[in-house]
Computed example of a mutant assay.
Amino acid sequence: MAVDLVATYKSIGWSPSTILHEGLRRTVDWYRSNLAAPPDKAGACDQLLG
């Protein structure tokens, strides 16, 4: 898949501020920090049940 950034820039005046591999790395890092580890459901149940 190819993206024609020249056409995008000419059309709306936008150009990326981050190169692709850096953006992907940042996305993966964010995902790992924020979404990858599910909450400890067993621990939450133990707290509710005493």
Rank of each mutant, 00 (worst) to 15 (best):
W30D: 02
D46F: 11
D40S: 07
I12M: 14
W14P: 00
L24G: 01
C45R: 12
N34F: 02
A37L: 11
A44Q: 14
R32D: 10
D46S: 10
E22D: 12
A44Y: 15
K10T: 06
H21M: 03
A37Q: 13
G43Q: 10
Q47D: 09
P39S: 02
L24D: 05
S15A: 13
C45D: 06
K10D: 06
L24N: 06
W30S: 03
L20P: 01
W14E: 12
R26K: 07
G43E: 15
D4N: 15
R25F: 08
Y9G: 04
E22T: 11
D46H: 10
Q47L: 15
G50P: 00
V6P: 00
L48G: 12
T8D: 09
D40E: 11
A7F: 00
G23H: 11
T27Y: 03
T18E: 04
R26T: 01
L49F: 03
H21Y: 01
I12V: 15
D40K: 04
D46W: 10
V28W: 01
T18Y: 09
G13D: 08
I19E: 15
W14Q: 09
T8S: 09
G13Y: 08
S15Y: 10
S11A: 15
S11V: 07
S33P: 01
L5T: 06
R25K: 08
A7W: 00
A2L: 11
Y31R: 02
R25P: 02
L20F: 08
Q47F: 13
A7E: 00
C45W: 09
L5R: 12
L35Y: 11
D29R: 08
W30G: 00
S15M: 09
S11M: 14
S15Q: 11
Y9N: 14
K10L: 04
N34M: 06
R25E: 11
Y9L: 15
Y9W: 09
L5G: 14
Q47C: 12
A36P: 02
S33R: 07
R32Q: 10
A42E: 15
D40P: 03
G50Y: 03
Q47W: 05
S11W: 12
S33Q: 04
N34A: 03
